[in-house]
């Protein structure tokens, strides 16, 4: 199979993730969409590694996974804390920092 198809798939996944982040209000869903975008990136990285014949892309993919894992830890903690205080997981309720 032509590796370029993986790139199309990656772009599709990224767009879905991006749209989810932009249009959904539930923080958990937003969070999952972010993960989706990260994984889309990972797919692209791996594909490029295959295309170019070196391991750089794969190494980056591992980095992304580590970052994603860290993000899950911190992000979920924030969401849980937020939910406890507000009894809601809507991102629109978290606008206290605006002027």
């Amino acid at each position: 199979m032509n590796p370029i198809n993986y790139l199309y798939l990656s772009a599709l996944l990224f767009t879905i993730g991006g749209a989810g982040v932009l249009f959904r209000r539930n923080a958990i869903i937003v969070f999952m969409c972010v993960e989706l975008m990260l994984n889309a990136c990972n797919l692209a990285f791996v594909t490029f590694a295959r295309l170019h014949g070196n391991l750089d892309g794969q190494i980056f993919a591992f980095f992304t996974m580590v970052v994603a894992a860290a993000e899950v830890v911190v992000g979920l903690a924030i969401i849980v804390t937020f939910f406890r205080s507000r009894h809601s997981a809507s991102v629109d309720d978290a606008s206290l920092m605006k002027l």
Binding site: L22, D92, A94, S95, L96, M97, K98
Partner: peptide, 17 residues
């Protein structure tokens, strides 16, 4: 300009995009 800083994550994300 202040209007842009509305505090909604989504609008920040749009501008990022």
């Amino acid at each position: 300009l202040r209007q842009v800083q509305n505090g909604y994550v989504r609008s920040y994300a749009v501008s990022m995009l």
